[in-house]
């Protein structure tokens, strides 16, 4: 799938029909520390791409560069065939464009980041109503259906602080789904959870993968990554060290570092 980049590049129309996300030569430095040293990747619609790597490998930074929560130092980000215009310093050139693109990317954070002053249902309807302009009643019905789907319909009127981490994260997934995202971005969605709560969140994500959602998933859950993904990227010190289908990456790793890494997390 990554080989497709080269052939598609000269034919943007063909690329945009199938391609959900393309990242080209992405660099990111924090001061003198270069965290990403030229990452290339792409995902087609319906792909589930798992991004794995040790802490400090740049996997979260890469995900956060895609919606410009972090400003890339250089590179290109193309989402659904639309390249995000960047200034020389890497910040988005057009506020309108980046806001429009962001409102189609469903981000799920490690720390949930639900709005604590709003109930679950209000969290889920917030972006549809106040960013996308969906009528309130329609957004409400959709939000209820989504909360139902993640098993939180009875908690709709509850504030996030009164829920477990697993419940909060499921609500955060419902919030991301509410914008009908073209791509879901998961930034270590289970890393902040107690072990016994991880399963309920993974079940929800597994469902989404099964229904053909395009997803980028930064995760430490290797078994899960192997199970749900179509493609696995292993990052090491800001570069893609190895990538391929999960059976290959997990079953027959070629790189010494990946072998070491898989041994250390097993």
């Amino acid at each position: 799938m990554t080989e497709a980049i080269a052939t598609d590049r000269n034919d943007p129309a063909a690329a945009s029909a199938e391609e959900a996300i393309r990242v080209e030569d992405l660099h990111k430095s924090f001061g003198n520390l270069e965290v990403l040293k030229g990452v290339n990747m792409s995902a087609k619609k319906g792909d589930v791409v798992a991004i794995i790597g040790g802490s400090g490998s740049g996997k979260s930074t890469m995900l956060r560069c895609i919606n410009f929560l972090e400003t890339p130092t250089s590179g290109r980000i193309v989402i659904g065939g639309e390249e995000i215009a960047m200034r020389a310093d890497g910040s988005p050139a057009s506020r309108k464009q980046i806001e429009r693109v962001r409102s189609r990317l469903g981000m799920v954070f490690q720390a949930f980041n639900l709005w604590t002053h709003r109930t679950l249902i209000e969290n889920v309807t917030e972006v549809p109503v106040h960013v996308l302009g969906v009528p309130k009643a329609e957004a409400h019905d959709r939000a209820m259906a989504l909360l139902e789907r993640v098993g939180l319909a009875e908690k709709a009127a509850t504030y996030p602080a009164f829920l477990s981490g697993g419940q909060q994260q499921r609500a955060a997934i419902a919030r991301a789904l509410a914008i009908d995202p073209s791509v879901m971005l998961f930034d270590e969605p289970t890393s902040a959870l107690d072990p016994e709560l991880v399963g309920e969140v993974l079940t929800v994500i597994r469902d989404l993968a099964a229904e053909g959602r395009t997803m980028l998933l930064v995760t430490h859950e290797m078994k899960f990554a192997r199970e749900v993904s179509d493609h696995v990227i292993y990052l090491f010190e800001g570069r893609i060290e190895e990538q391929g289908p999960p059976e290959a990456v997990f079953g027959a790793p070629k790189s010494e570092r990946l072998k070491q890494f898989l041994k250390s997390v097993a």
């Binding site: 929560l69 720390a111 980041n113 709005w115 960013v131």
Partner: peptide, 11 residues
């Protein structure tokens, strides 16, 4: 994170 979530959703 609350501000970041708002940014991430294009507010």
């Amino acid at each position: 994170g609350q501000i970041e979530a708002a940014r991430a959703f294009g507010m």
